[in-house]
Simulated scan of single mutants.
Amino acid sequence: MHPDPSPEFFHECSKIAAANDAQKRMRPKPGTLGALLQFYFETEHFQNRAATTQRDYRLSADYLHPIKDTPVSSITTPLIAGIHDKASTKMGWRRANILLVFISQVFKYNIPHGNISRNFATGVIPKPRPKNAPARNRAWSYEEVQAMLEASAPEMRGALALIHCTGLDPTDALGLRRDQVAGDVIWRDRDKTKVGAAVPIGDTLRAELQRMPEHDALTVLASSSGRSWTYDGFQSSFQRLKKKLEAKGAIKPGLTPKGLRHTMATWLREAGRSERDISDLLAQKSPAMGLHYSKDADLARKNRATIEVWEEENKRRAEIVKPTKKSVKP
Rank of each mutant, 00 (worst) to 15 (best):
Gly114His: 08
Ile116His: 03
Asn119Ala: 03
Ala121Gln: 04
Ala121Ile: 11
Ala121Met: 10
Val124Lys: 04
Val124Ser: 08
Pro126Cys: 09
Arg129Phe: 03
Arg129Thr: 13
Arg129Pro: 04
Arg129Gln: 14
Arg129Cys: 12
Lys131Gln: 12
Asn132His: 13
Ala133Pro: 03
Arg136Leu: 11
Ser141Ala: 06
Gln146Val: 14
Gln146Leu: 14
Gln146Cys: 11
Glu150Asn: 12
Ser152Asp: 08
Glu155Thr: 13
Glu155Ile: 00
Met156Val: 11
Gly158Ile: 10
Leu160Gln: 02
Leu162Ala: 02
Gly167Leu: 02
Gly167Thr: 00
Asp169Ala: 15
Arg177Met: 15
Arg177Pro: 05
Asp179Tyr: 10
Asp179Phe: 10
Asp179Asn: 14
Gln180Glu: 15
Gln180Tyr: 04
Val181Ala: 02
Gly183Gln: 09
Gly183Ile: 09
Asp184Leu: 09
Arg188Trp: 00
Arg188Val: 05
Asp189Leu: 04
Asp191Met: 14
Gly196Asn: 01
Gly196Arg: 01
Val199Gly: 01
Asp203Ile: 10
Asp203Pro: 04
Asp203Lys: 13
Thr204His: 14
Thr204Pro: 06
Glu208Ala: 15
Leu209Pro: 06
Arg211Lys: 15
Glu214Pro: 07
Val220His: 05
Ser225His: 11
Gly226Ala: 04
Arg227Thr: 12
Trp229Arg: 03
Asp232Ala: 15
Gly233Arg: 06
Phe234Ile: 05
Phe234Asn: 02
Gln235Ala: 10
Gln239Cys: 05
